[in-house]
Amino acid sequence: MKGEHLYEKIEAYLSGDLSDADHKVFEGELAKDAALQKEVKLHRRLESELSKPNKKLLRDNLKIISARQTINLNEGEINPKNINIPKSSSFKWLPFLLIALAFLAGAYFLTRPKNNTVKPSQAPTQQELESPNQTPQEQTPTEDSKRNEIRLHQASNEKVEKNKENDQALIASADPADFISNPYLDNQIGNTVRGESYSVIMDKSATAGKVALINGVAQLRLKGSLKTDGKLEKDASFVLMIYTNKKEDYLEDRSILNVPINLQPLKNDAFPFQFNANLRITPGLYYYMVAEKNNDEPLHVGKFEVQSQGR
């Protein structure tokens, strides 16, 4: 049995159109013929795939749309002046939601699992953030700020420098002193991307451009606000990530820091936030990124240089 006849037999078998007697005979042949078994499976699989309702139509239409679609990588950037945000009066429930969010973010922060890129022997676990409302401190690290230092994750297997003063691990992350831009992140700088419904505007006055490294500590002060087109999703939470300038660290998702952002109550049509941290990092170029937690597409990307004192 071969050719057209075989195909018809297989099709009739698969659609249950064989007589009882023929069905029995065919099954007998199948049982002793592995090649025939394979052939039957191939026909079955072909038919089940190509007969899926609308799949051909979907594929055809996607091809048509895709061929005529042009990509504009800048579309979706938002000019802050053009954003119309509903007035806060219609969101009386938001402060309650924000308190809940802040609480959840805090709980997450305290209980979250360690980043799996961190080597336990190299990365201290203590991570403390200053209160978001705290007044920025003087540029000289105080005893308090030393306690508040954030020990960053080691991003890759670069050398770990030791802090001579307290001999605790210092996380050196950027390629020291190379200050070379990461093109992937540079392309996104300043992009204030509208997420599903969010955008982030950074406050220029507080955005770190250059950060001095004093006694091994870089005081990073970031300030910005999150705008929405009307509402915060129930489960929305946001994170701030810091990357080194190394291409592979970004491409392979190895941020050196990933912490929740605590949003403050709605003010001037946006939710302000601050990020104040004393970072034990080496001189070099770093990038920060604000993203939605469950969807790490950047809402905003910026960069800062950490420079040795006197540089």
Binding site: I71, N72, L73, G76, L185, N187, Q188, V193, E297
Partner: peptide, 9 residues
């Protein structure tokens, strides 16, 4: 465009 930004990045 948003997915393209991710892929190109």
């Amino acid at each position: 465009n948003r997915i393209a930004r991710f892929i190109t990045s």
